[in-house]
């Protein structure tokens, strides 16, 4: 038992390299998902009828397709039509596209729940439409989407080990390398799980702290 703990501790630096990779994948995928997600949310609300149909189909497809299948389409499929991307980029695109569909729903829900009266109130004060958007709508929309965003971030974090399937050196890969020489799969995968658990909690409480920092009475944004 003690021996196992010491073994894991001595190899923590190696596993930490994997942690850095997991964080990079997660953050970049979420950012890609955010950019596309915001665009999709706006198109779904303000777009023409055909555009709305198109983006809701987009949401349906990328919420439904398994991340791993999308990852394989990008990683194994695209080279067949002459597009060669690095494995890292493939993972970010795969996870990011899936996340964009979920994030679009979060932002759309937030924008819709603010209600048209807020925009009218802004205009009635003599603010322009853009100013109302920036000073009235956005500050509320950001607060309203924080719980959903936090949830989505942790989901992407939990999906990030799928990068293992295209050979990226993240926590599981380094773990596997260690097992080849030490034959201690039980301890190493347990340690991997614990590392992810700590990461998960870390980000969860980080976002919770951000949420409570910007808490305004009337918006429940730091809840479960």
């Amino acid at each position: 038992m003690l021996e196992s703990v010491i073994y894991i501790l001595t190899n923590i630096p190696l596993l930490m390299k994997g942690v850095w990779m997991a964080v990079q994948i997660t953050v970049l995928s979420v950012l890609l998902g955010m950019v596309i997600g915001i665009a999709v949310a706006f198109l779904r609300i303000y777009g023409s009828k055909n555009m709305r149909r198109l983006v809701s189909f987009y949401e349906w497809v990328f919420r439904g397709i398994p991340q791993l299948v999308l990852l394989f389409i990008v990683y194994f499929g695209l080279p067949g039509i002459g597009i060669n991307l690095s494995p890292f980029l493939c993972v970010v695109i795969g996870l990011g596209l899936c996340s964009s569909a979920y994030q679009a729903q979060i932002y759309r829900g937030a924008i819709l729940s603010i209600g048209s009266e807020q925009m009218e109130a802004g205009l009635s004060l003599g603010l322009s439409k853009t100013r109302t958007l920036f000073y009235v709508i956005l500050p509320q929309a950001v607060r309203l989407s924080l719980p959903g965003f936090t949830n989505e971030f942790t989901i992407v974090l939990k999906d990030s080990p799928l990068a293992y399937a295209v050979g990226i050196a993240e926590i599981l890969k380094y773990g596997r390398d260690l097992i080849v020489s030490s034959f201690r799969p039980f301890e190493i995968y347990l340690a991997a799980a614990l590392i992810y658990f700590v990461l998960f909690q870390l980000f969860y409480y980080l976002f919770k702290a951000i949420a409570s920092r910007y808490q305004v009475p009337g918006y429940i944004i730091s809840g479960e």
Partner: peptide, 14 residues
């Protein structure tokens, strides 16, 4: 709080 893939590795290999 832990990824599914890591859980599967733990169950299958660990």
């Amino acid at each position: 709080g832990t990824p599914l893939l890591v859980q599967l590795f733990f169950i299958y290999y660990g």
